[in-house]
Simulated scan of single mutants.
Amino acid sequence: MHTKDYYDITIIGGGPVGMFAATYARMRLAKTQIIESLDQLGGQVQALFPSKKIYDIPAFPAVTGSELVQQLEKQLEHFSPDVFLGETVEGFTKVEDGFEIKTSKRTTYSKTIIIATGAGAFEPRKLKLANASDFEGSNLHYLVTDIEKFRGKDLAIAGGGDSAIDWALELAPIANSIHLIHRRDKFRALEANIAALKQTDVIFQTPYLISELADNQGKLKLTLNKVRSDETKELTVDHLLVNYGFSSSSKAMEAWQLTLENRGIKTNIALETSTPGIYAIGDIAQHEGKLDLMATGFGEAPTAVNNALLYIYPDKRQPAHSTQLIKKFEEAQN
């Protein structure tokens, strides 16, 4: 009997592949948790290109990252795994009944682990001003999780890449005003999207950098400095959205002491890593013939889950079709 509360499966990474793995694990009635380093589910798809269309998802001729994540979240909510956001796995240790997992917030225990971290833990690159953290969560945002929050508001968006342009395109129809701030006159984004944005009422503030932030009766006052000039201007907005890209780190992965291959984790045909009881799926998993496609990761998820449960319960019969799994899941809820 376990003296600690163990999950059957812990999934590290809450991107699309990790979300589906958690859904399937719960369909198999496994006690499951997701640990995600960002403050939202969806991983790179949601954080980096929510409005871009994806064309290699079965049954969808085309689907945006946001639409895909929304559908995965609906599916996930039905099966209710435990989800922990804004939490980074720092390491894990083999113990008698499974693994002790240390995160940035807690210690947790699991009989098996499935790693679905994509290219690594992602964190937004933040605005480098001394008082920027004073406004985070109120007027200053690094992620757009709910566009309705910005309806009818005056916004500033800082950044010049695809994601910043995507945000501006998505918010332009509902915001009262948008100022797009970039340190160059040219943008690092799809030309078609930039052309589309120029047909909107978005105001381009280039080439400027944000040099100061200040509170203005609950709104945010920005001081902009023109690049290579002493010229400044001020803007007052309801919200500032910063997208300077995301930094990824594989340091945690290196500390996990698993065999690595091609910047990923080496797995066998069962998607098991060099440590029994730990599996890897999606872009992080590397094996012969592997294709780094989301569709591949979705297919790997049930394989890893079933092998993890076979590792825990070697005498338990493998599942049949999803209809039978759903029937068993619904019976277990009653």
Rank of each mutant, 00 (worst) to 15 (best):
Y244N: 04
S110P: 09
D238A: 05
I281Q: 03
F49A: 11
A168M: 09
V63C: 00
G43Y: 15
V95E: 12
L169T: 09
P276V: 02
N307C: 04
A158D: 12
E170Q: 11
D292G: 05
G282R: 09
I113P: 01
V144W: 02
S274T: 11
H2T: 08
E123D: 01
Y109G: 02
H239D: 11
H179D: 07
P319A: 14
E123P: 00
V63H: 02
A280K: 00
T88R: 14
V17Q: 08
E254P: 00
L209K: 03
K111F: 03
A158K: 08
D154Y: 01
T223A: 03
L240S: 12
V63G: 02
P124K: 10
G91L: 03
A192P: 01
D283M: 01
A116Y: 14
E254F: 02
Q257S: 14
L169M: 04
S249K: 08
S248N: 12
L171F: 00
G18L: 07
A119G: 03
R151W: 01
V242R: 06
V237H: 09
A172P: 12
L222A: 07
A168I: 05
R26Y: 02
Q205H: 11
T200A: 11
R184H: 06
Q257C: 01
A280M: 03
L76K: 09
L85W: 05
G118A: 01
T107I: 14
N216M: 13
D238G: 06
V227Q: 14
L240P: 12
T64G: 09
V83C: 11
N243E: 11
L197M: 13
H179Y: 15
K328I: 03
P61L: 00
K153G: 00
A119W: 08
S247V: 13
K251R: 15
F150C: 04
L180Q: 13
Q333D: 07
V227E: 13
L224S: 14
L38T: 14
L190S: 02
T10Y: 12
G160S: 08
A304P: 00
A156Q: 02
L180G: 11
D166S: 05
N139A: 14
A175F: 05
V95W: 15
G282E: 09
V69N: 06
R106L: 07
T303S: 08
L241Y: 08
I114G: 09
P314A: 10
S133H: 11
L325I: 07
G43R: 15
E77I: 13
S104P: 04
A196S: 08
F84N: 10
T112R: 09
F84M: 04
A30M: 07
A25P: 08
D185I: 04
E254Y: 03
G289A: 02
E191H: 15
V144G: 00
T108P: 02
K221G: 05
D185R: 12
P173T: 07
I210Q: 10
V45R: 06
P302E: 15
N216Y: 14
T273I: 02
G98Q: 11
S66D: 14
L129R: 01
I210N: 14
N334M: 15
Q44K: 05
A22L: 06
I101C: 10
S138C: 09
L293H: 02
F298S: 01
Y244G: 00
T103M: 10
R26I: 06
I284N: 05
G91N: 10
